[in-house]
C-alpha cells in the first residue's frame, strides 16, 4: 500500500461516520440538558418537613390576627417565628383530636422545648432585613413577600440547598429564574429591583448587609 491509498481509505471512513457523530452529539446535548435542568435541581435540594404541621387557616380563626404570633418587639425588631409563649395559653392541654396537636403538646409544650421551625425566607447571615421598614413605614402586606403561607392549611415542604445550606425560597422554585410574583424569589437583585422602583435608588451595601 502506498501513502495515497492510506489517506483516501481513512477519508471514506470519516464520511460514513458523519451522521452518527451528529446523532451522538445531539444525544449528548439532550442528556446534559436533562441533567442540568431536571436531575441536578432535584439532587441539589434536600426536602425537609417542619417538625409539626401547623395550619394558619385554623389559627387565624381562633386568634384573629397575625400579630398575636408575629409581632414587633418594643425595640422595633420583629419577633419572626413564634415561641411557645404565644401558644401555651391555648395548648396547655390537647383540645382537638389531630395528631399534630398531640405531638406539639406532648413533645414540646410538656417538655418546655421550643419548636425548631424551619424558616423559608431565612436570608444568609450577612444580610440585614427590616420588617419595620416594610410593614410599618412602607405599609406593605405580608403577602407581598411571603405569598400565601399566612392563610395556608399546612406548612409547605422546606427545601434546603445542599451546597449553601440556604432555603430554596431565596433562589426560587423556578430553576430558570422566571418570576411571576414578588415572593417567588428573594435574591439580592430582587430586593434591589423593588427598592429602585419604589425609591429610585438601589441603596448602598450597608443598607441590607451587616
Amino acid at each position: 500500500m502506498s501513502e495515497t491509498q492510506k489517506v483516501s481509505a481513512s477519508d471514506n471512513k470519516r464520511k460514513n461516520t458523519g451522521g452518527t457523530t451528529i446523532l451522538f452529539f445531539l444525544i449528548g446535548v439532550a442528556i446534559s440538558l436533562a441533567v442540568g435542568w431536571v436531575i441536578f435541581p432535584k439532587l441539589l435540594y434536600l426536602k425537609k418537613s417542619q417538625p409539626i404541621d401547623f395550619s394558619h387557616a385554623v389559627h387565624n380563626e381562633a386568634v384573629g390576627d397575625c400579630d398575636s404570633c408575629h409581632f414587633f418587639r418594643e425595640d422595633g425588631t420583629f419577633s419572626g417565628s413564634p415561641t411557645l409563649a404565644q401558644c401555651i395559653d391555648c395548648h396547655e392541654d390537647v383540645q382537638g383530636d389531630t395528631e399534630a396537636e398531640q405531638i406539639f403538646v406532648e413533645e414540646y409544650i410538656a417538655q418546655n422545648k421550643e419548636v425548631p421551625w424551619l424558616i423559608y425566607s431565612k436570608q444568609p447571615d450577612c444580610v440585614f432585613f427590616s420588617h419595620a421598614a416594610h410593614v410599618k413605614k412602607a405599609e406593605m402586606s405580608c403577602e407581598s413577600c411571603h405569598g400565601e403561607i399566612g392563610t395556608s392549611e399546612t406548612l409547605p415542604i422546606y427545601e434546603e440547598n445542599r451546597i449553601t445550606g440556604y432555603s430554596r425560597n431565596i433562589w426560587g422554585k423556578n430553576i430558570a429564574g422566571i418570576k411571576k410574583h414578588t415572593w417567588d424569589r428573594m435574591k439580592m437583585d430582587d430586593c434591589g429591583e423593588c427598592h429602585e422602583e419604589e425609591t429610585g435608588d438601589k441603596g448602598s451595601c450597608f443598607q441590607c448587609h451587616k
Binding site: F72, G76, T77, F128, S130, A132, A133, K136, F206
Partner: peptide
C-alpha cells in the same frame, strides 16, 4: 471598623416601628 452601623440599622427599625 463600621462605625457600628448595625446600631444605626436597629435605631431606624425602632423609629419606623414607632412611626
Amino acid at each position: 471598623c463600621s462605625f457600628c452601623h448595625h446600631r444605626y440599622q436597629l435605631a431606624l427599625d425602632k423609629a419606623y416601628a414607632e412611626g
